[in-house]
């Protein structure tokens, strides 16, 4: 008995140690990335970097203001496109569940989720850039919106599925029409889940480079026109990091740092939003 007990105790300790070790091990790359980013990036960050346009090669200084503005414009445009579509499709899936169209929609969403982002860029190039004969923020937003769409569809569907049927019945029994029940009872009850999905979607696309390479293209100027090429932080990182100039490498680190902070903010906002607006049934 005692022998057995000792053995179990030993195995238990061993396993606990192993799990602990793997946990730490998987945290190490993350910590290294953050450490490196801060170490290399923070030096490049100053007021000028955040508020000035890039300088030509050879001149020192300058900033990535155009890219920060560009990234924000791209996020806003793609969110405006993906959110209504995604929530609509999510509602459809949660309400209809079975049926041919629902099956196709679910299949399409799954495929879209697995489509390489560079392919989405090519598609946006064919759909928007070619007919309009110009690289544009719009084209970049289309590519990013397609990327975001499956995430919003899924999170909306999953959230709405968790809302008890009794809630819908309560509204219907009061003589509330079906569409009003969805809009005024079901959607508000799922608000926090849907918002989380949107914010995580934004965090996901904010750092995408591949779909922007031949859509938004990048631009050294400050551009607010969505029909013109526009810069974005990931494009700056890509271009500067692959350049031969040490000054630009420094700026690429700075841009990476800004981008990471942005993504982090969206992630944290999603976490806080979920907690704050969580509805208990």
């Amino acid at each position: 008995m005692i022998e057995n007990y000792r053995k179990r105790k030993l195995v238990n300790t061993l396993m606990k140690g192993l799990v602990f070790f793997f946990t730490i091990l998987s945290l190490v790359p993350l910590l290294f990335i953050l450490f490196y980013l801060i170490k290399q990036g923070i030096g490049a960050i100053n007021w000028e970097f955040l508020t000035h346009l890039p300088k030509p090669v050879g001149e020192s200084g300058g900033g990535v203001f155009n890219a920060i503005v560009g990234t924000i414009i791209l996020i806003v445009l793609s969110t405006l496109m993906a959110v209504p579509l995604g929530i609509g499709a999510g509602i459809y899936l949660a309400e209809v569940k079975a049926g041919k169209l629902a099956y196709l929609l679910r299949l399409g969403t799954d495929i879209l989720q697995g489509t390489p982002s560079i392919v989405l860029g090519v598609i946006a190039y064919l759909w928007v850039v070619k007919p309009m004969k110009s690289f544009s923020a719009l084209a970049g937003s289309v590519a990013l919106a397609i990327m975001m769409l499956p995430m919003i569809v899924c999170s909306t569907e999953e959230t709405l599925k968790l809302i008890p049927y009794s809630l819908k019945e309560a509204a219907l029994a009061l003589g509330v029409p079906y569409y009003r029940t969805i809009l005024k009872v079901i959607l508000p009850a799922g608000f926090s889940g849907i918002l989380t999905g949107i914010l995580l979607g934004i965090a996901r696309i904010a750092g995408e480079t591949a779909p922007l390479l031949f859509t938004a293209f990048g631009s050294p100027y400050l551009n607010l026109n969505p029909l013109k090429p526009i810069s974005a932080l990931p494009l700056v990182v890509f271009n500067y990091a692959s350049s031969p100039y040490p000054d630009w490498w420094r700026q690429a680190w700075g841009a990476s740092f800004v981008l990471t902070v942005m993504v982090l903010v969206f992630n944290l906002a999603a976490k806080i939003g979920t907690r704050k607006w969580e509805i208990k049934f």
């Binding site: 309560a170 509204a171 029994a173 009061l174 003589g175 208990k280």
Partner: peptide, 19 residues
């Protein structure tokens, strides 16, 4: 819709609107 406004219903489990 008109019927349900004239005939109210209460369910097995209390289901107030949580929002």
């Amino acid at each position: 819709i008109q019927v349900r406004r004239r005939i109210g219903m209460v369910f097995q489990r209390p289901n107030p609107f949580p929002t």
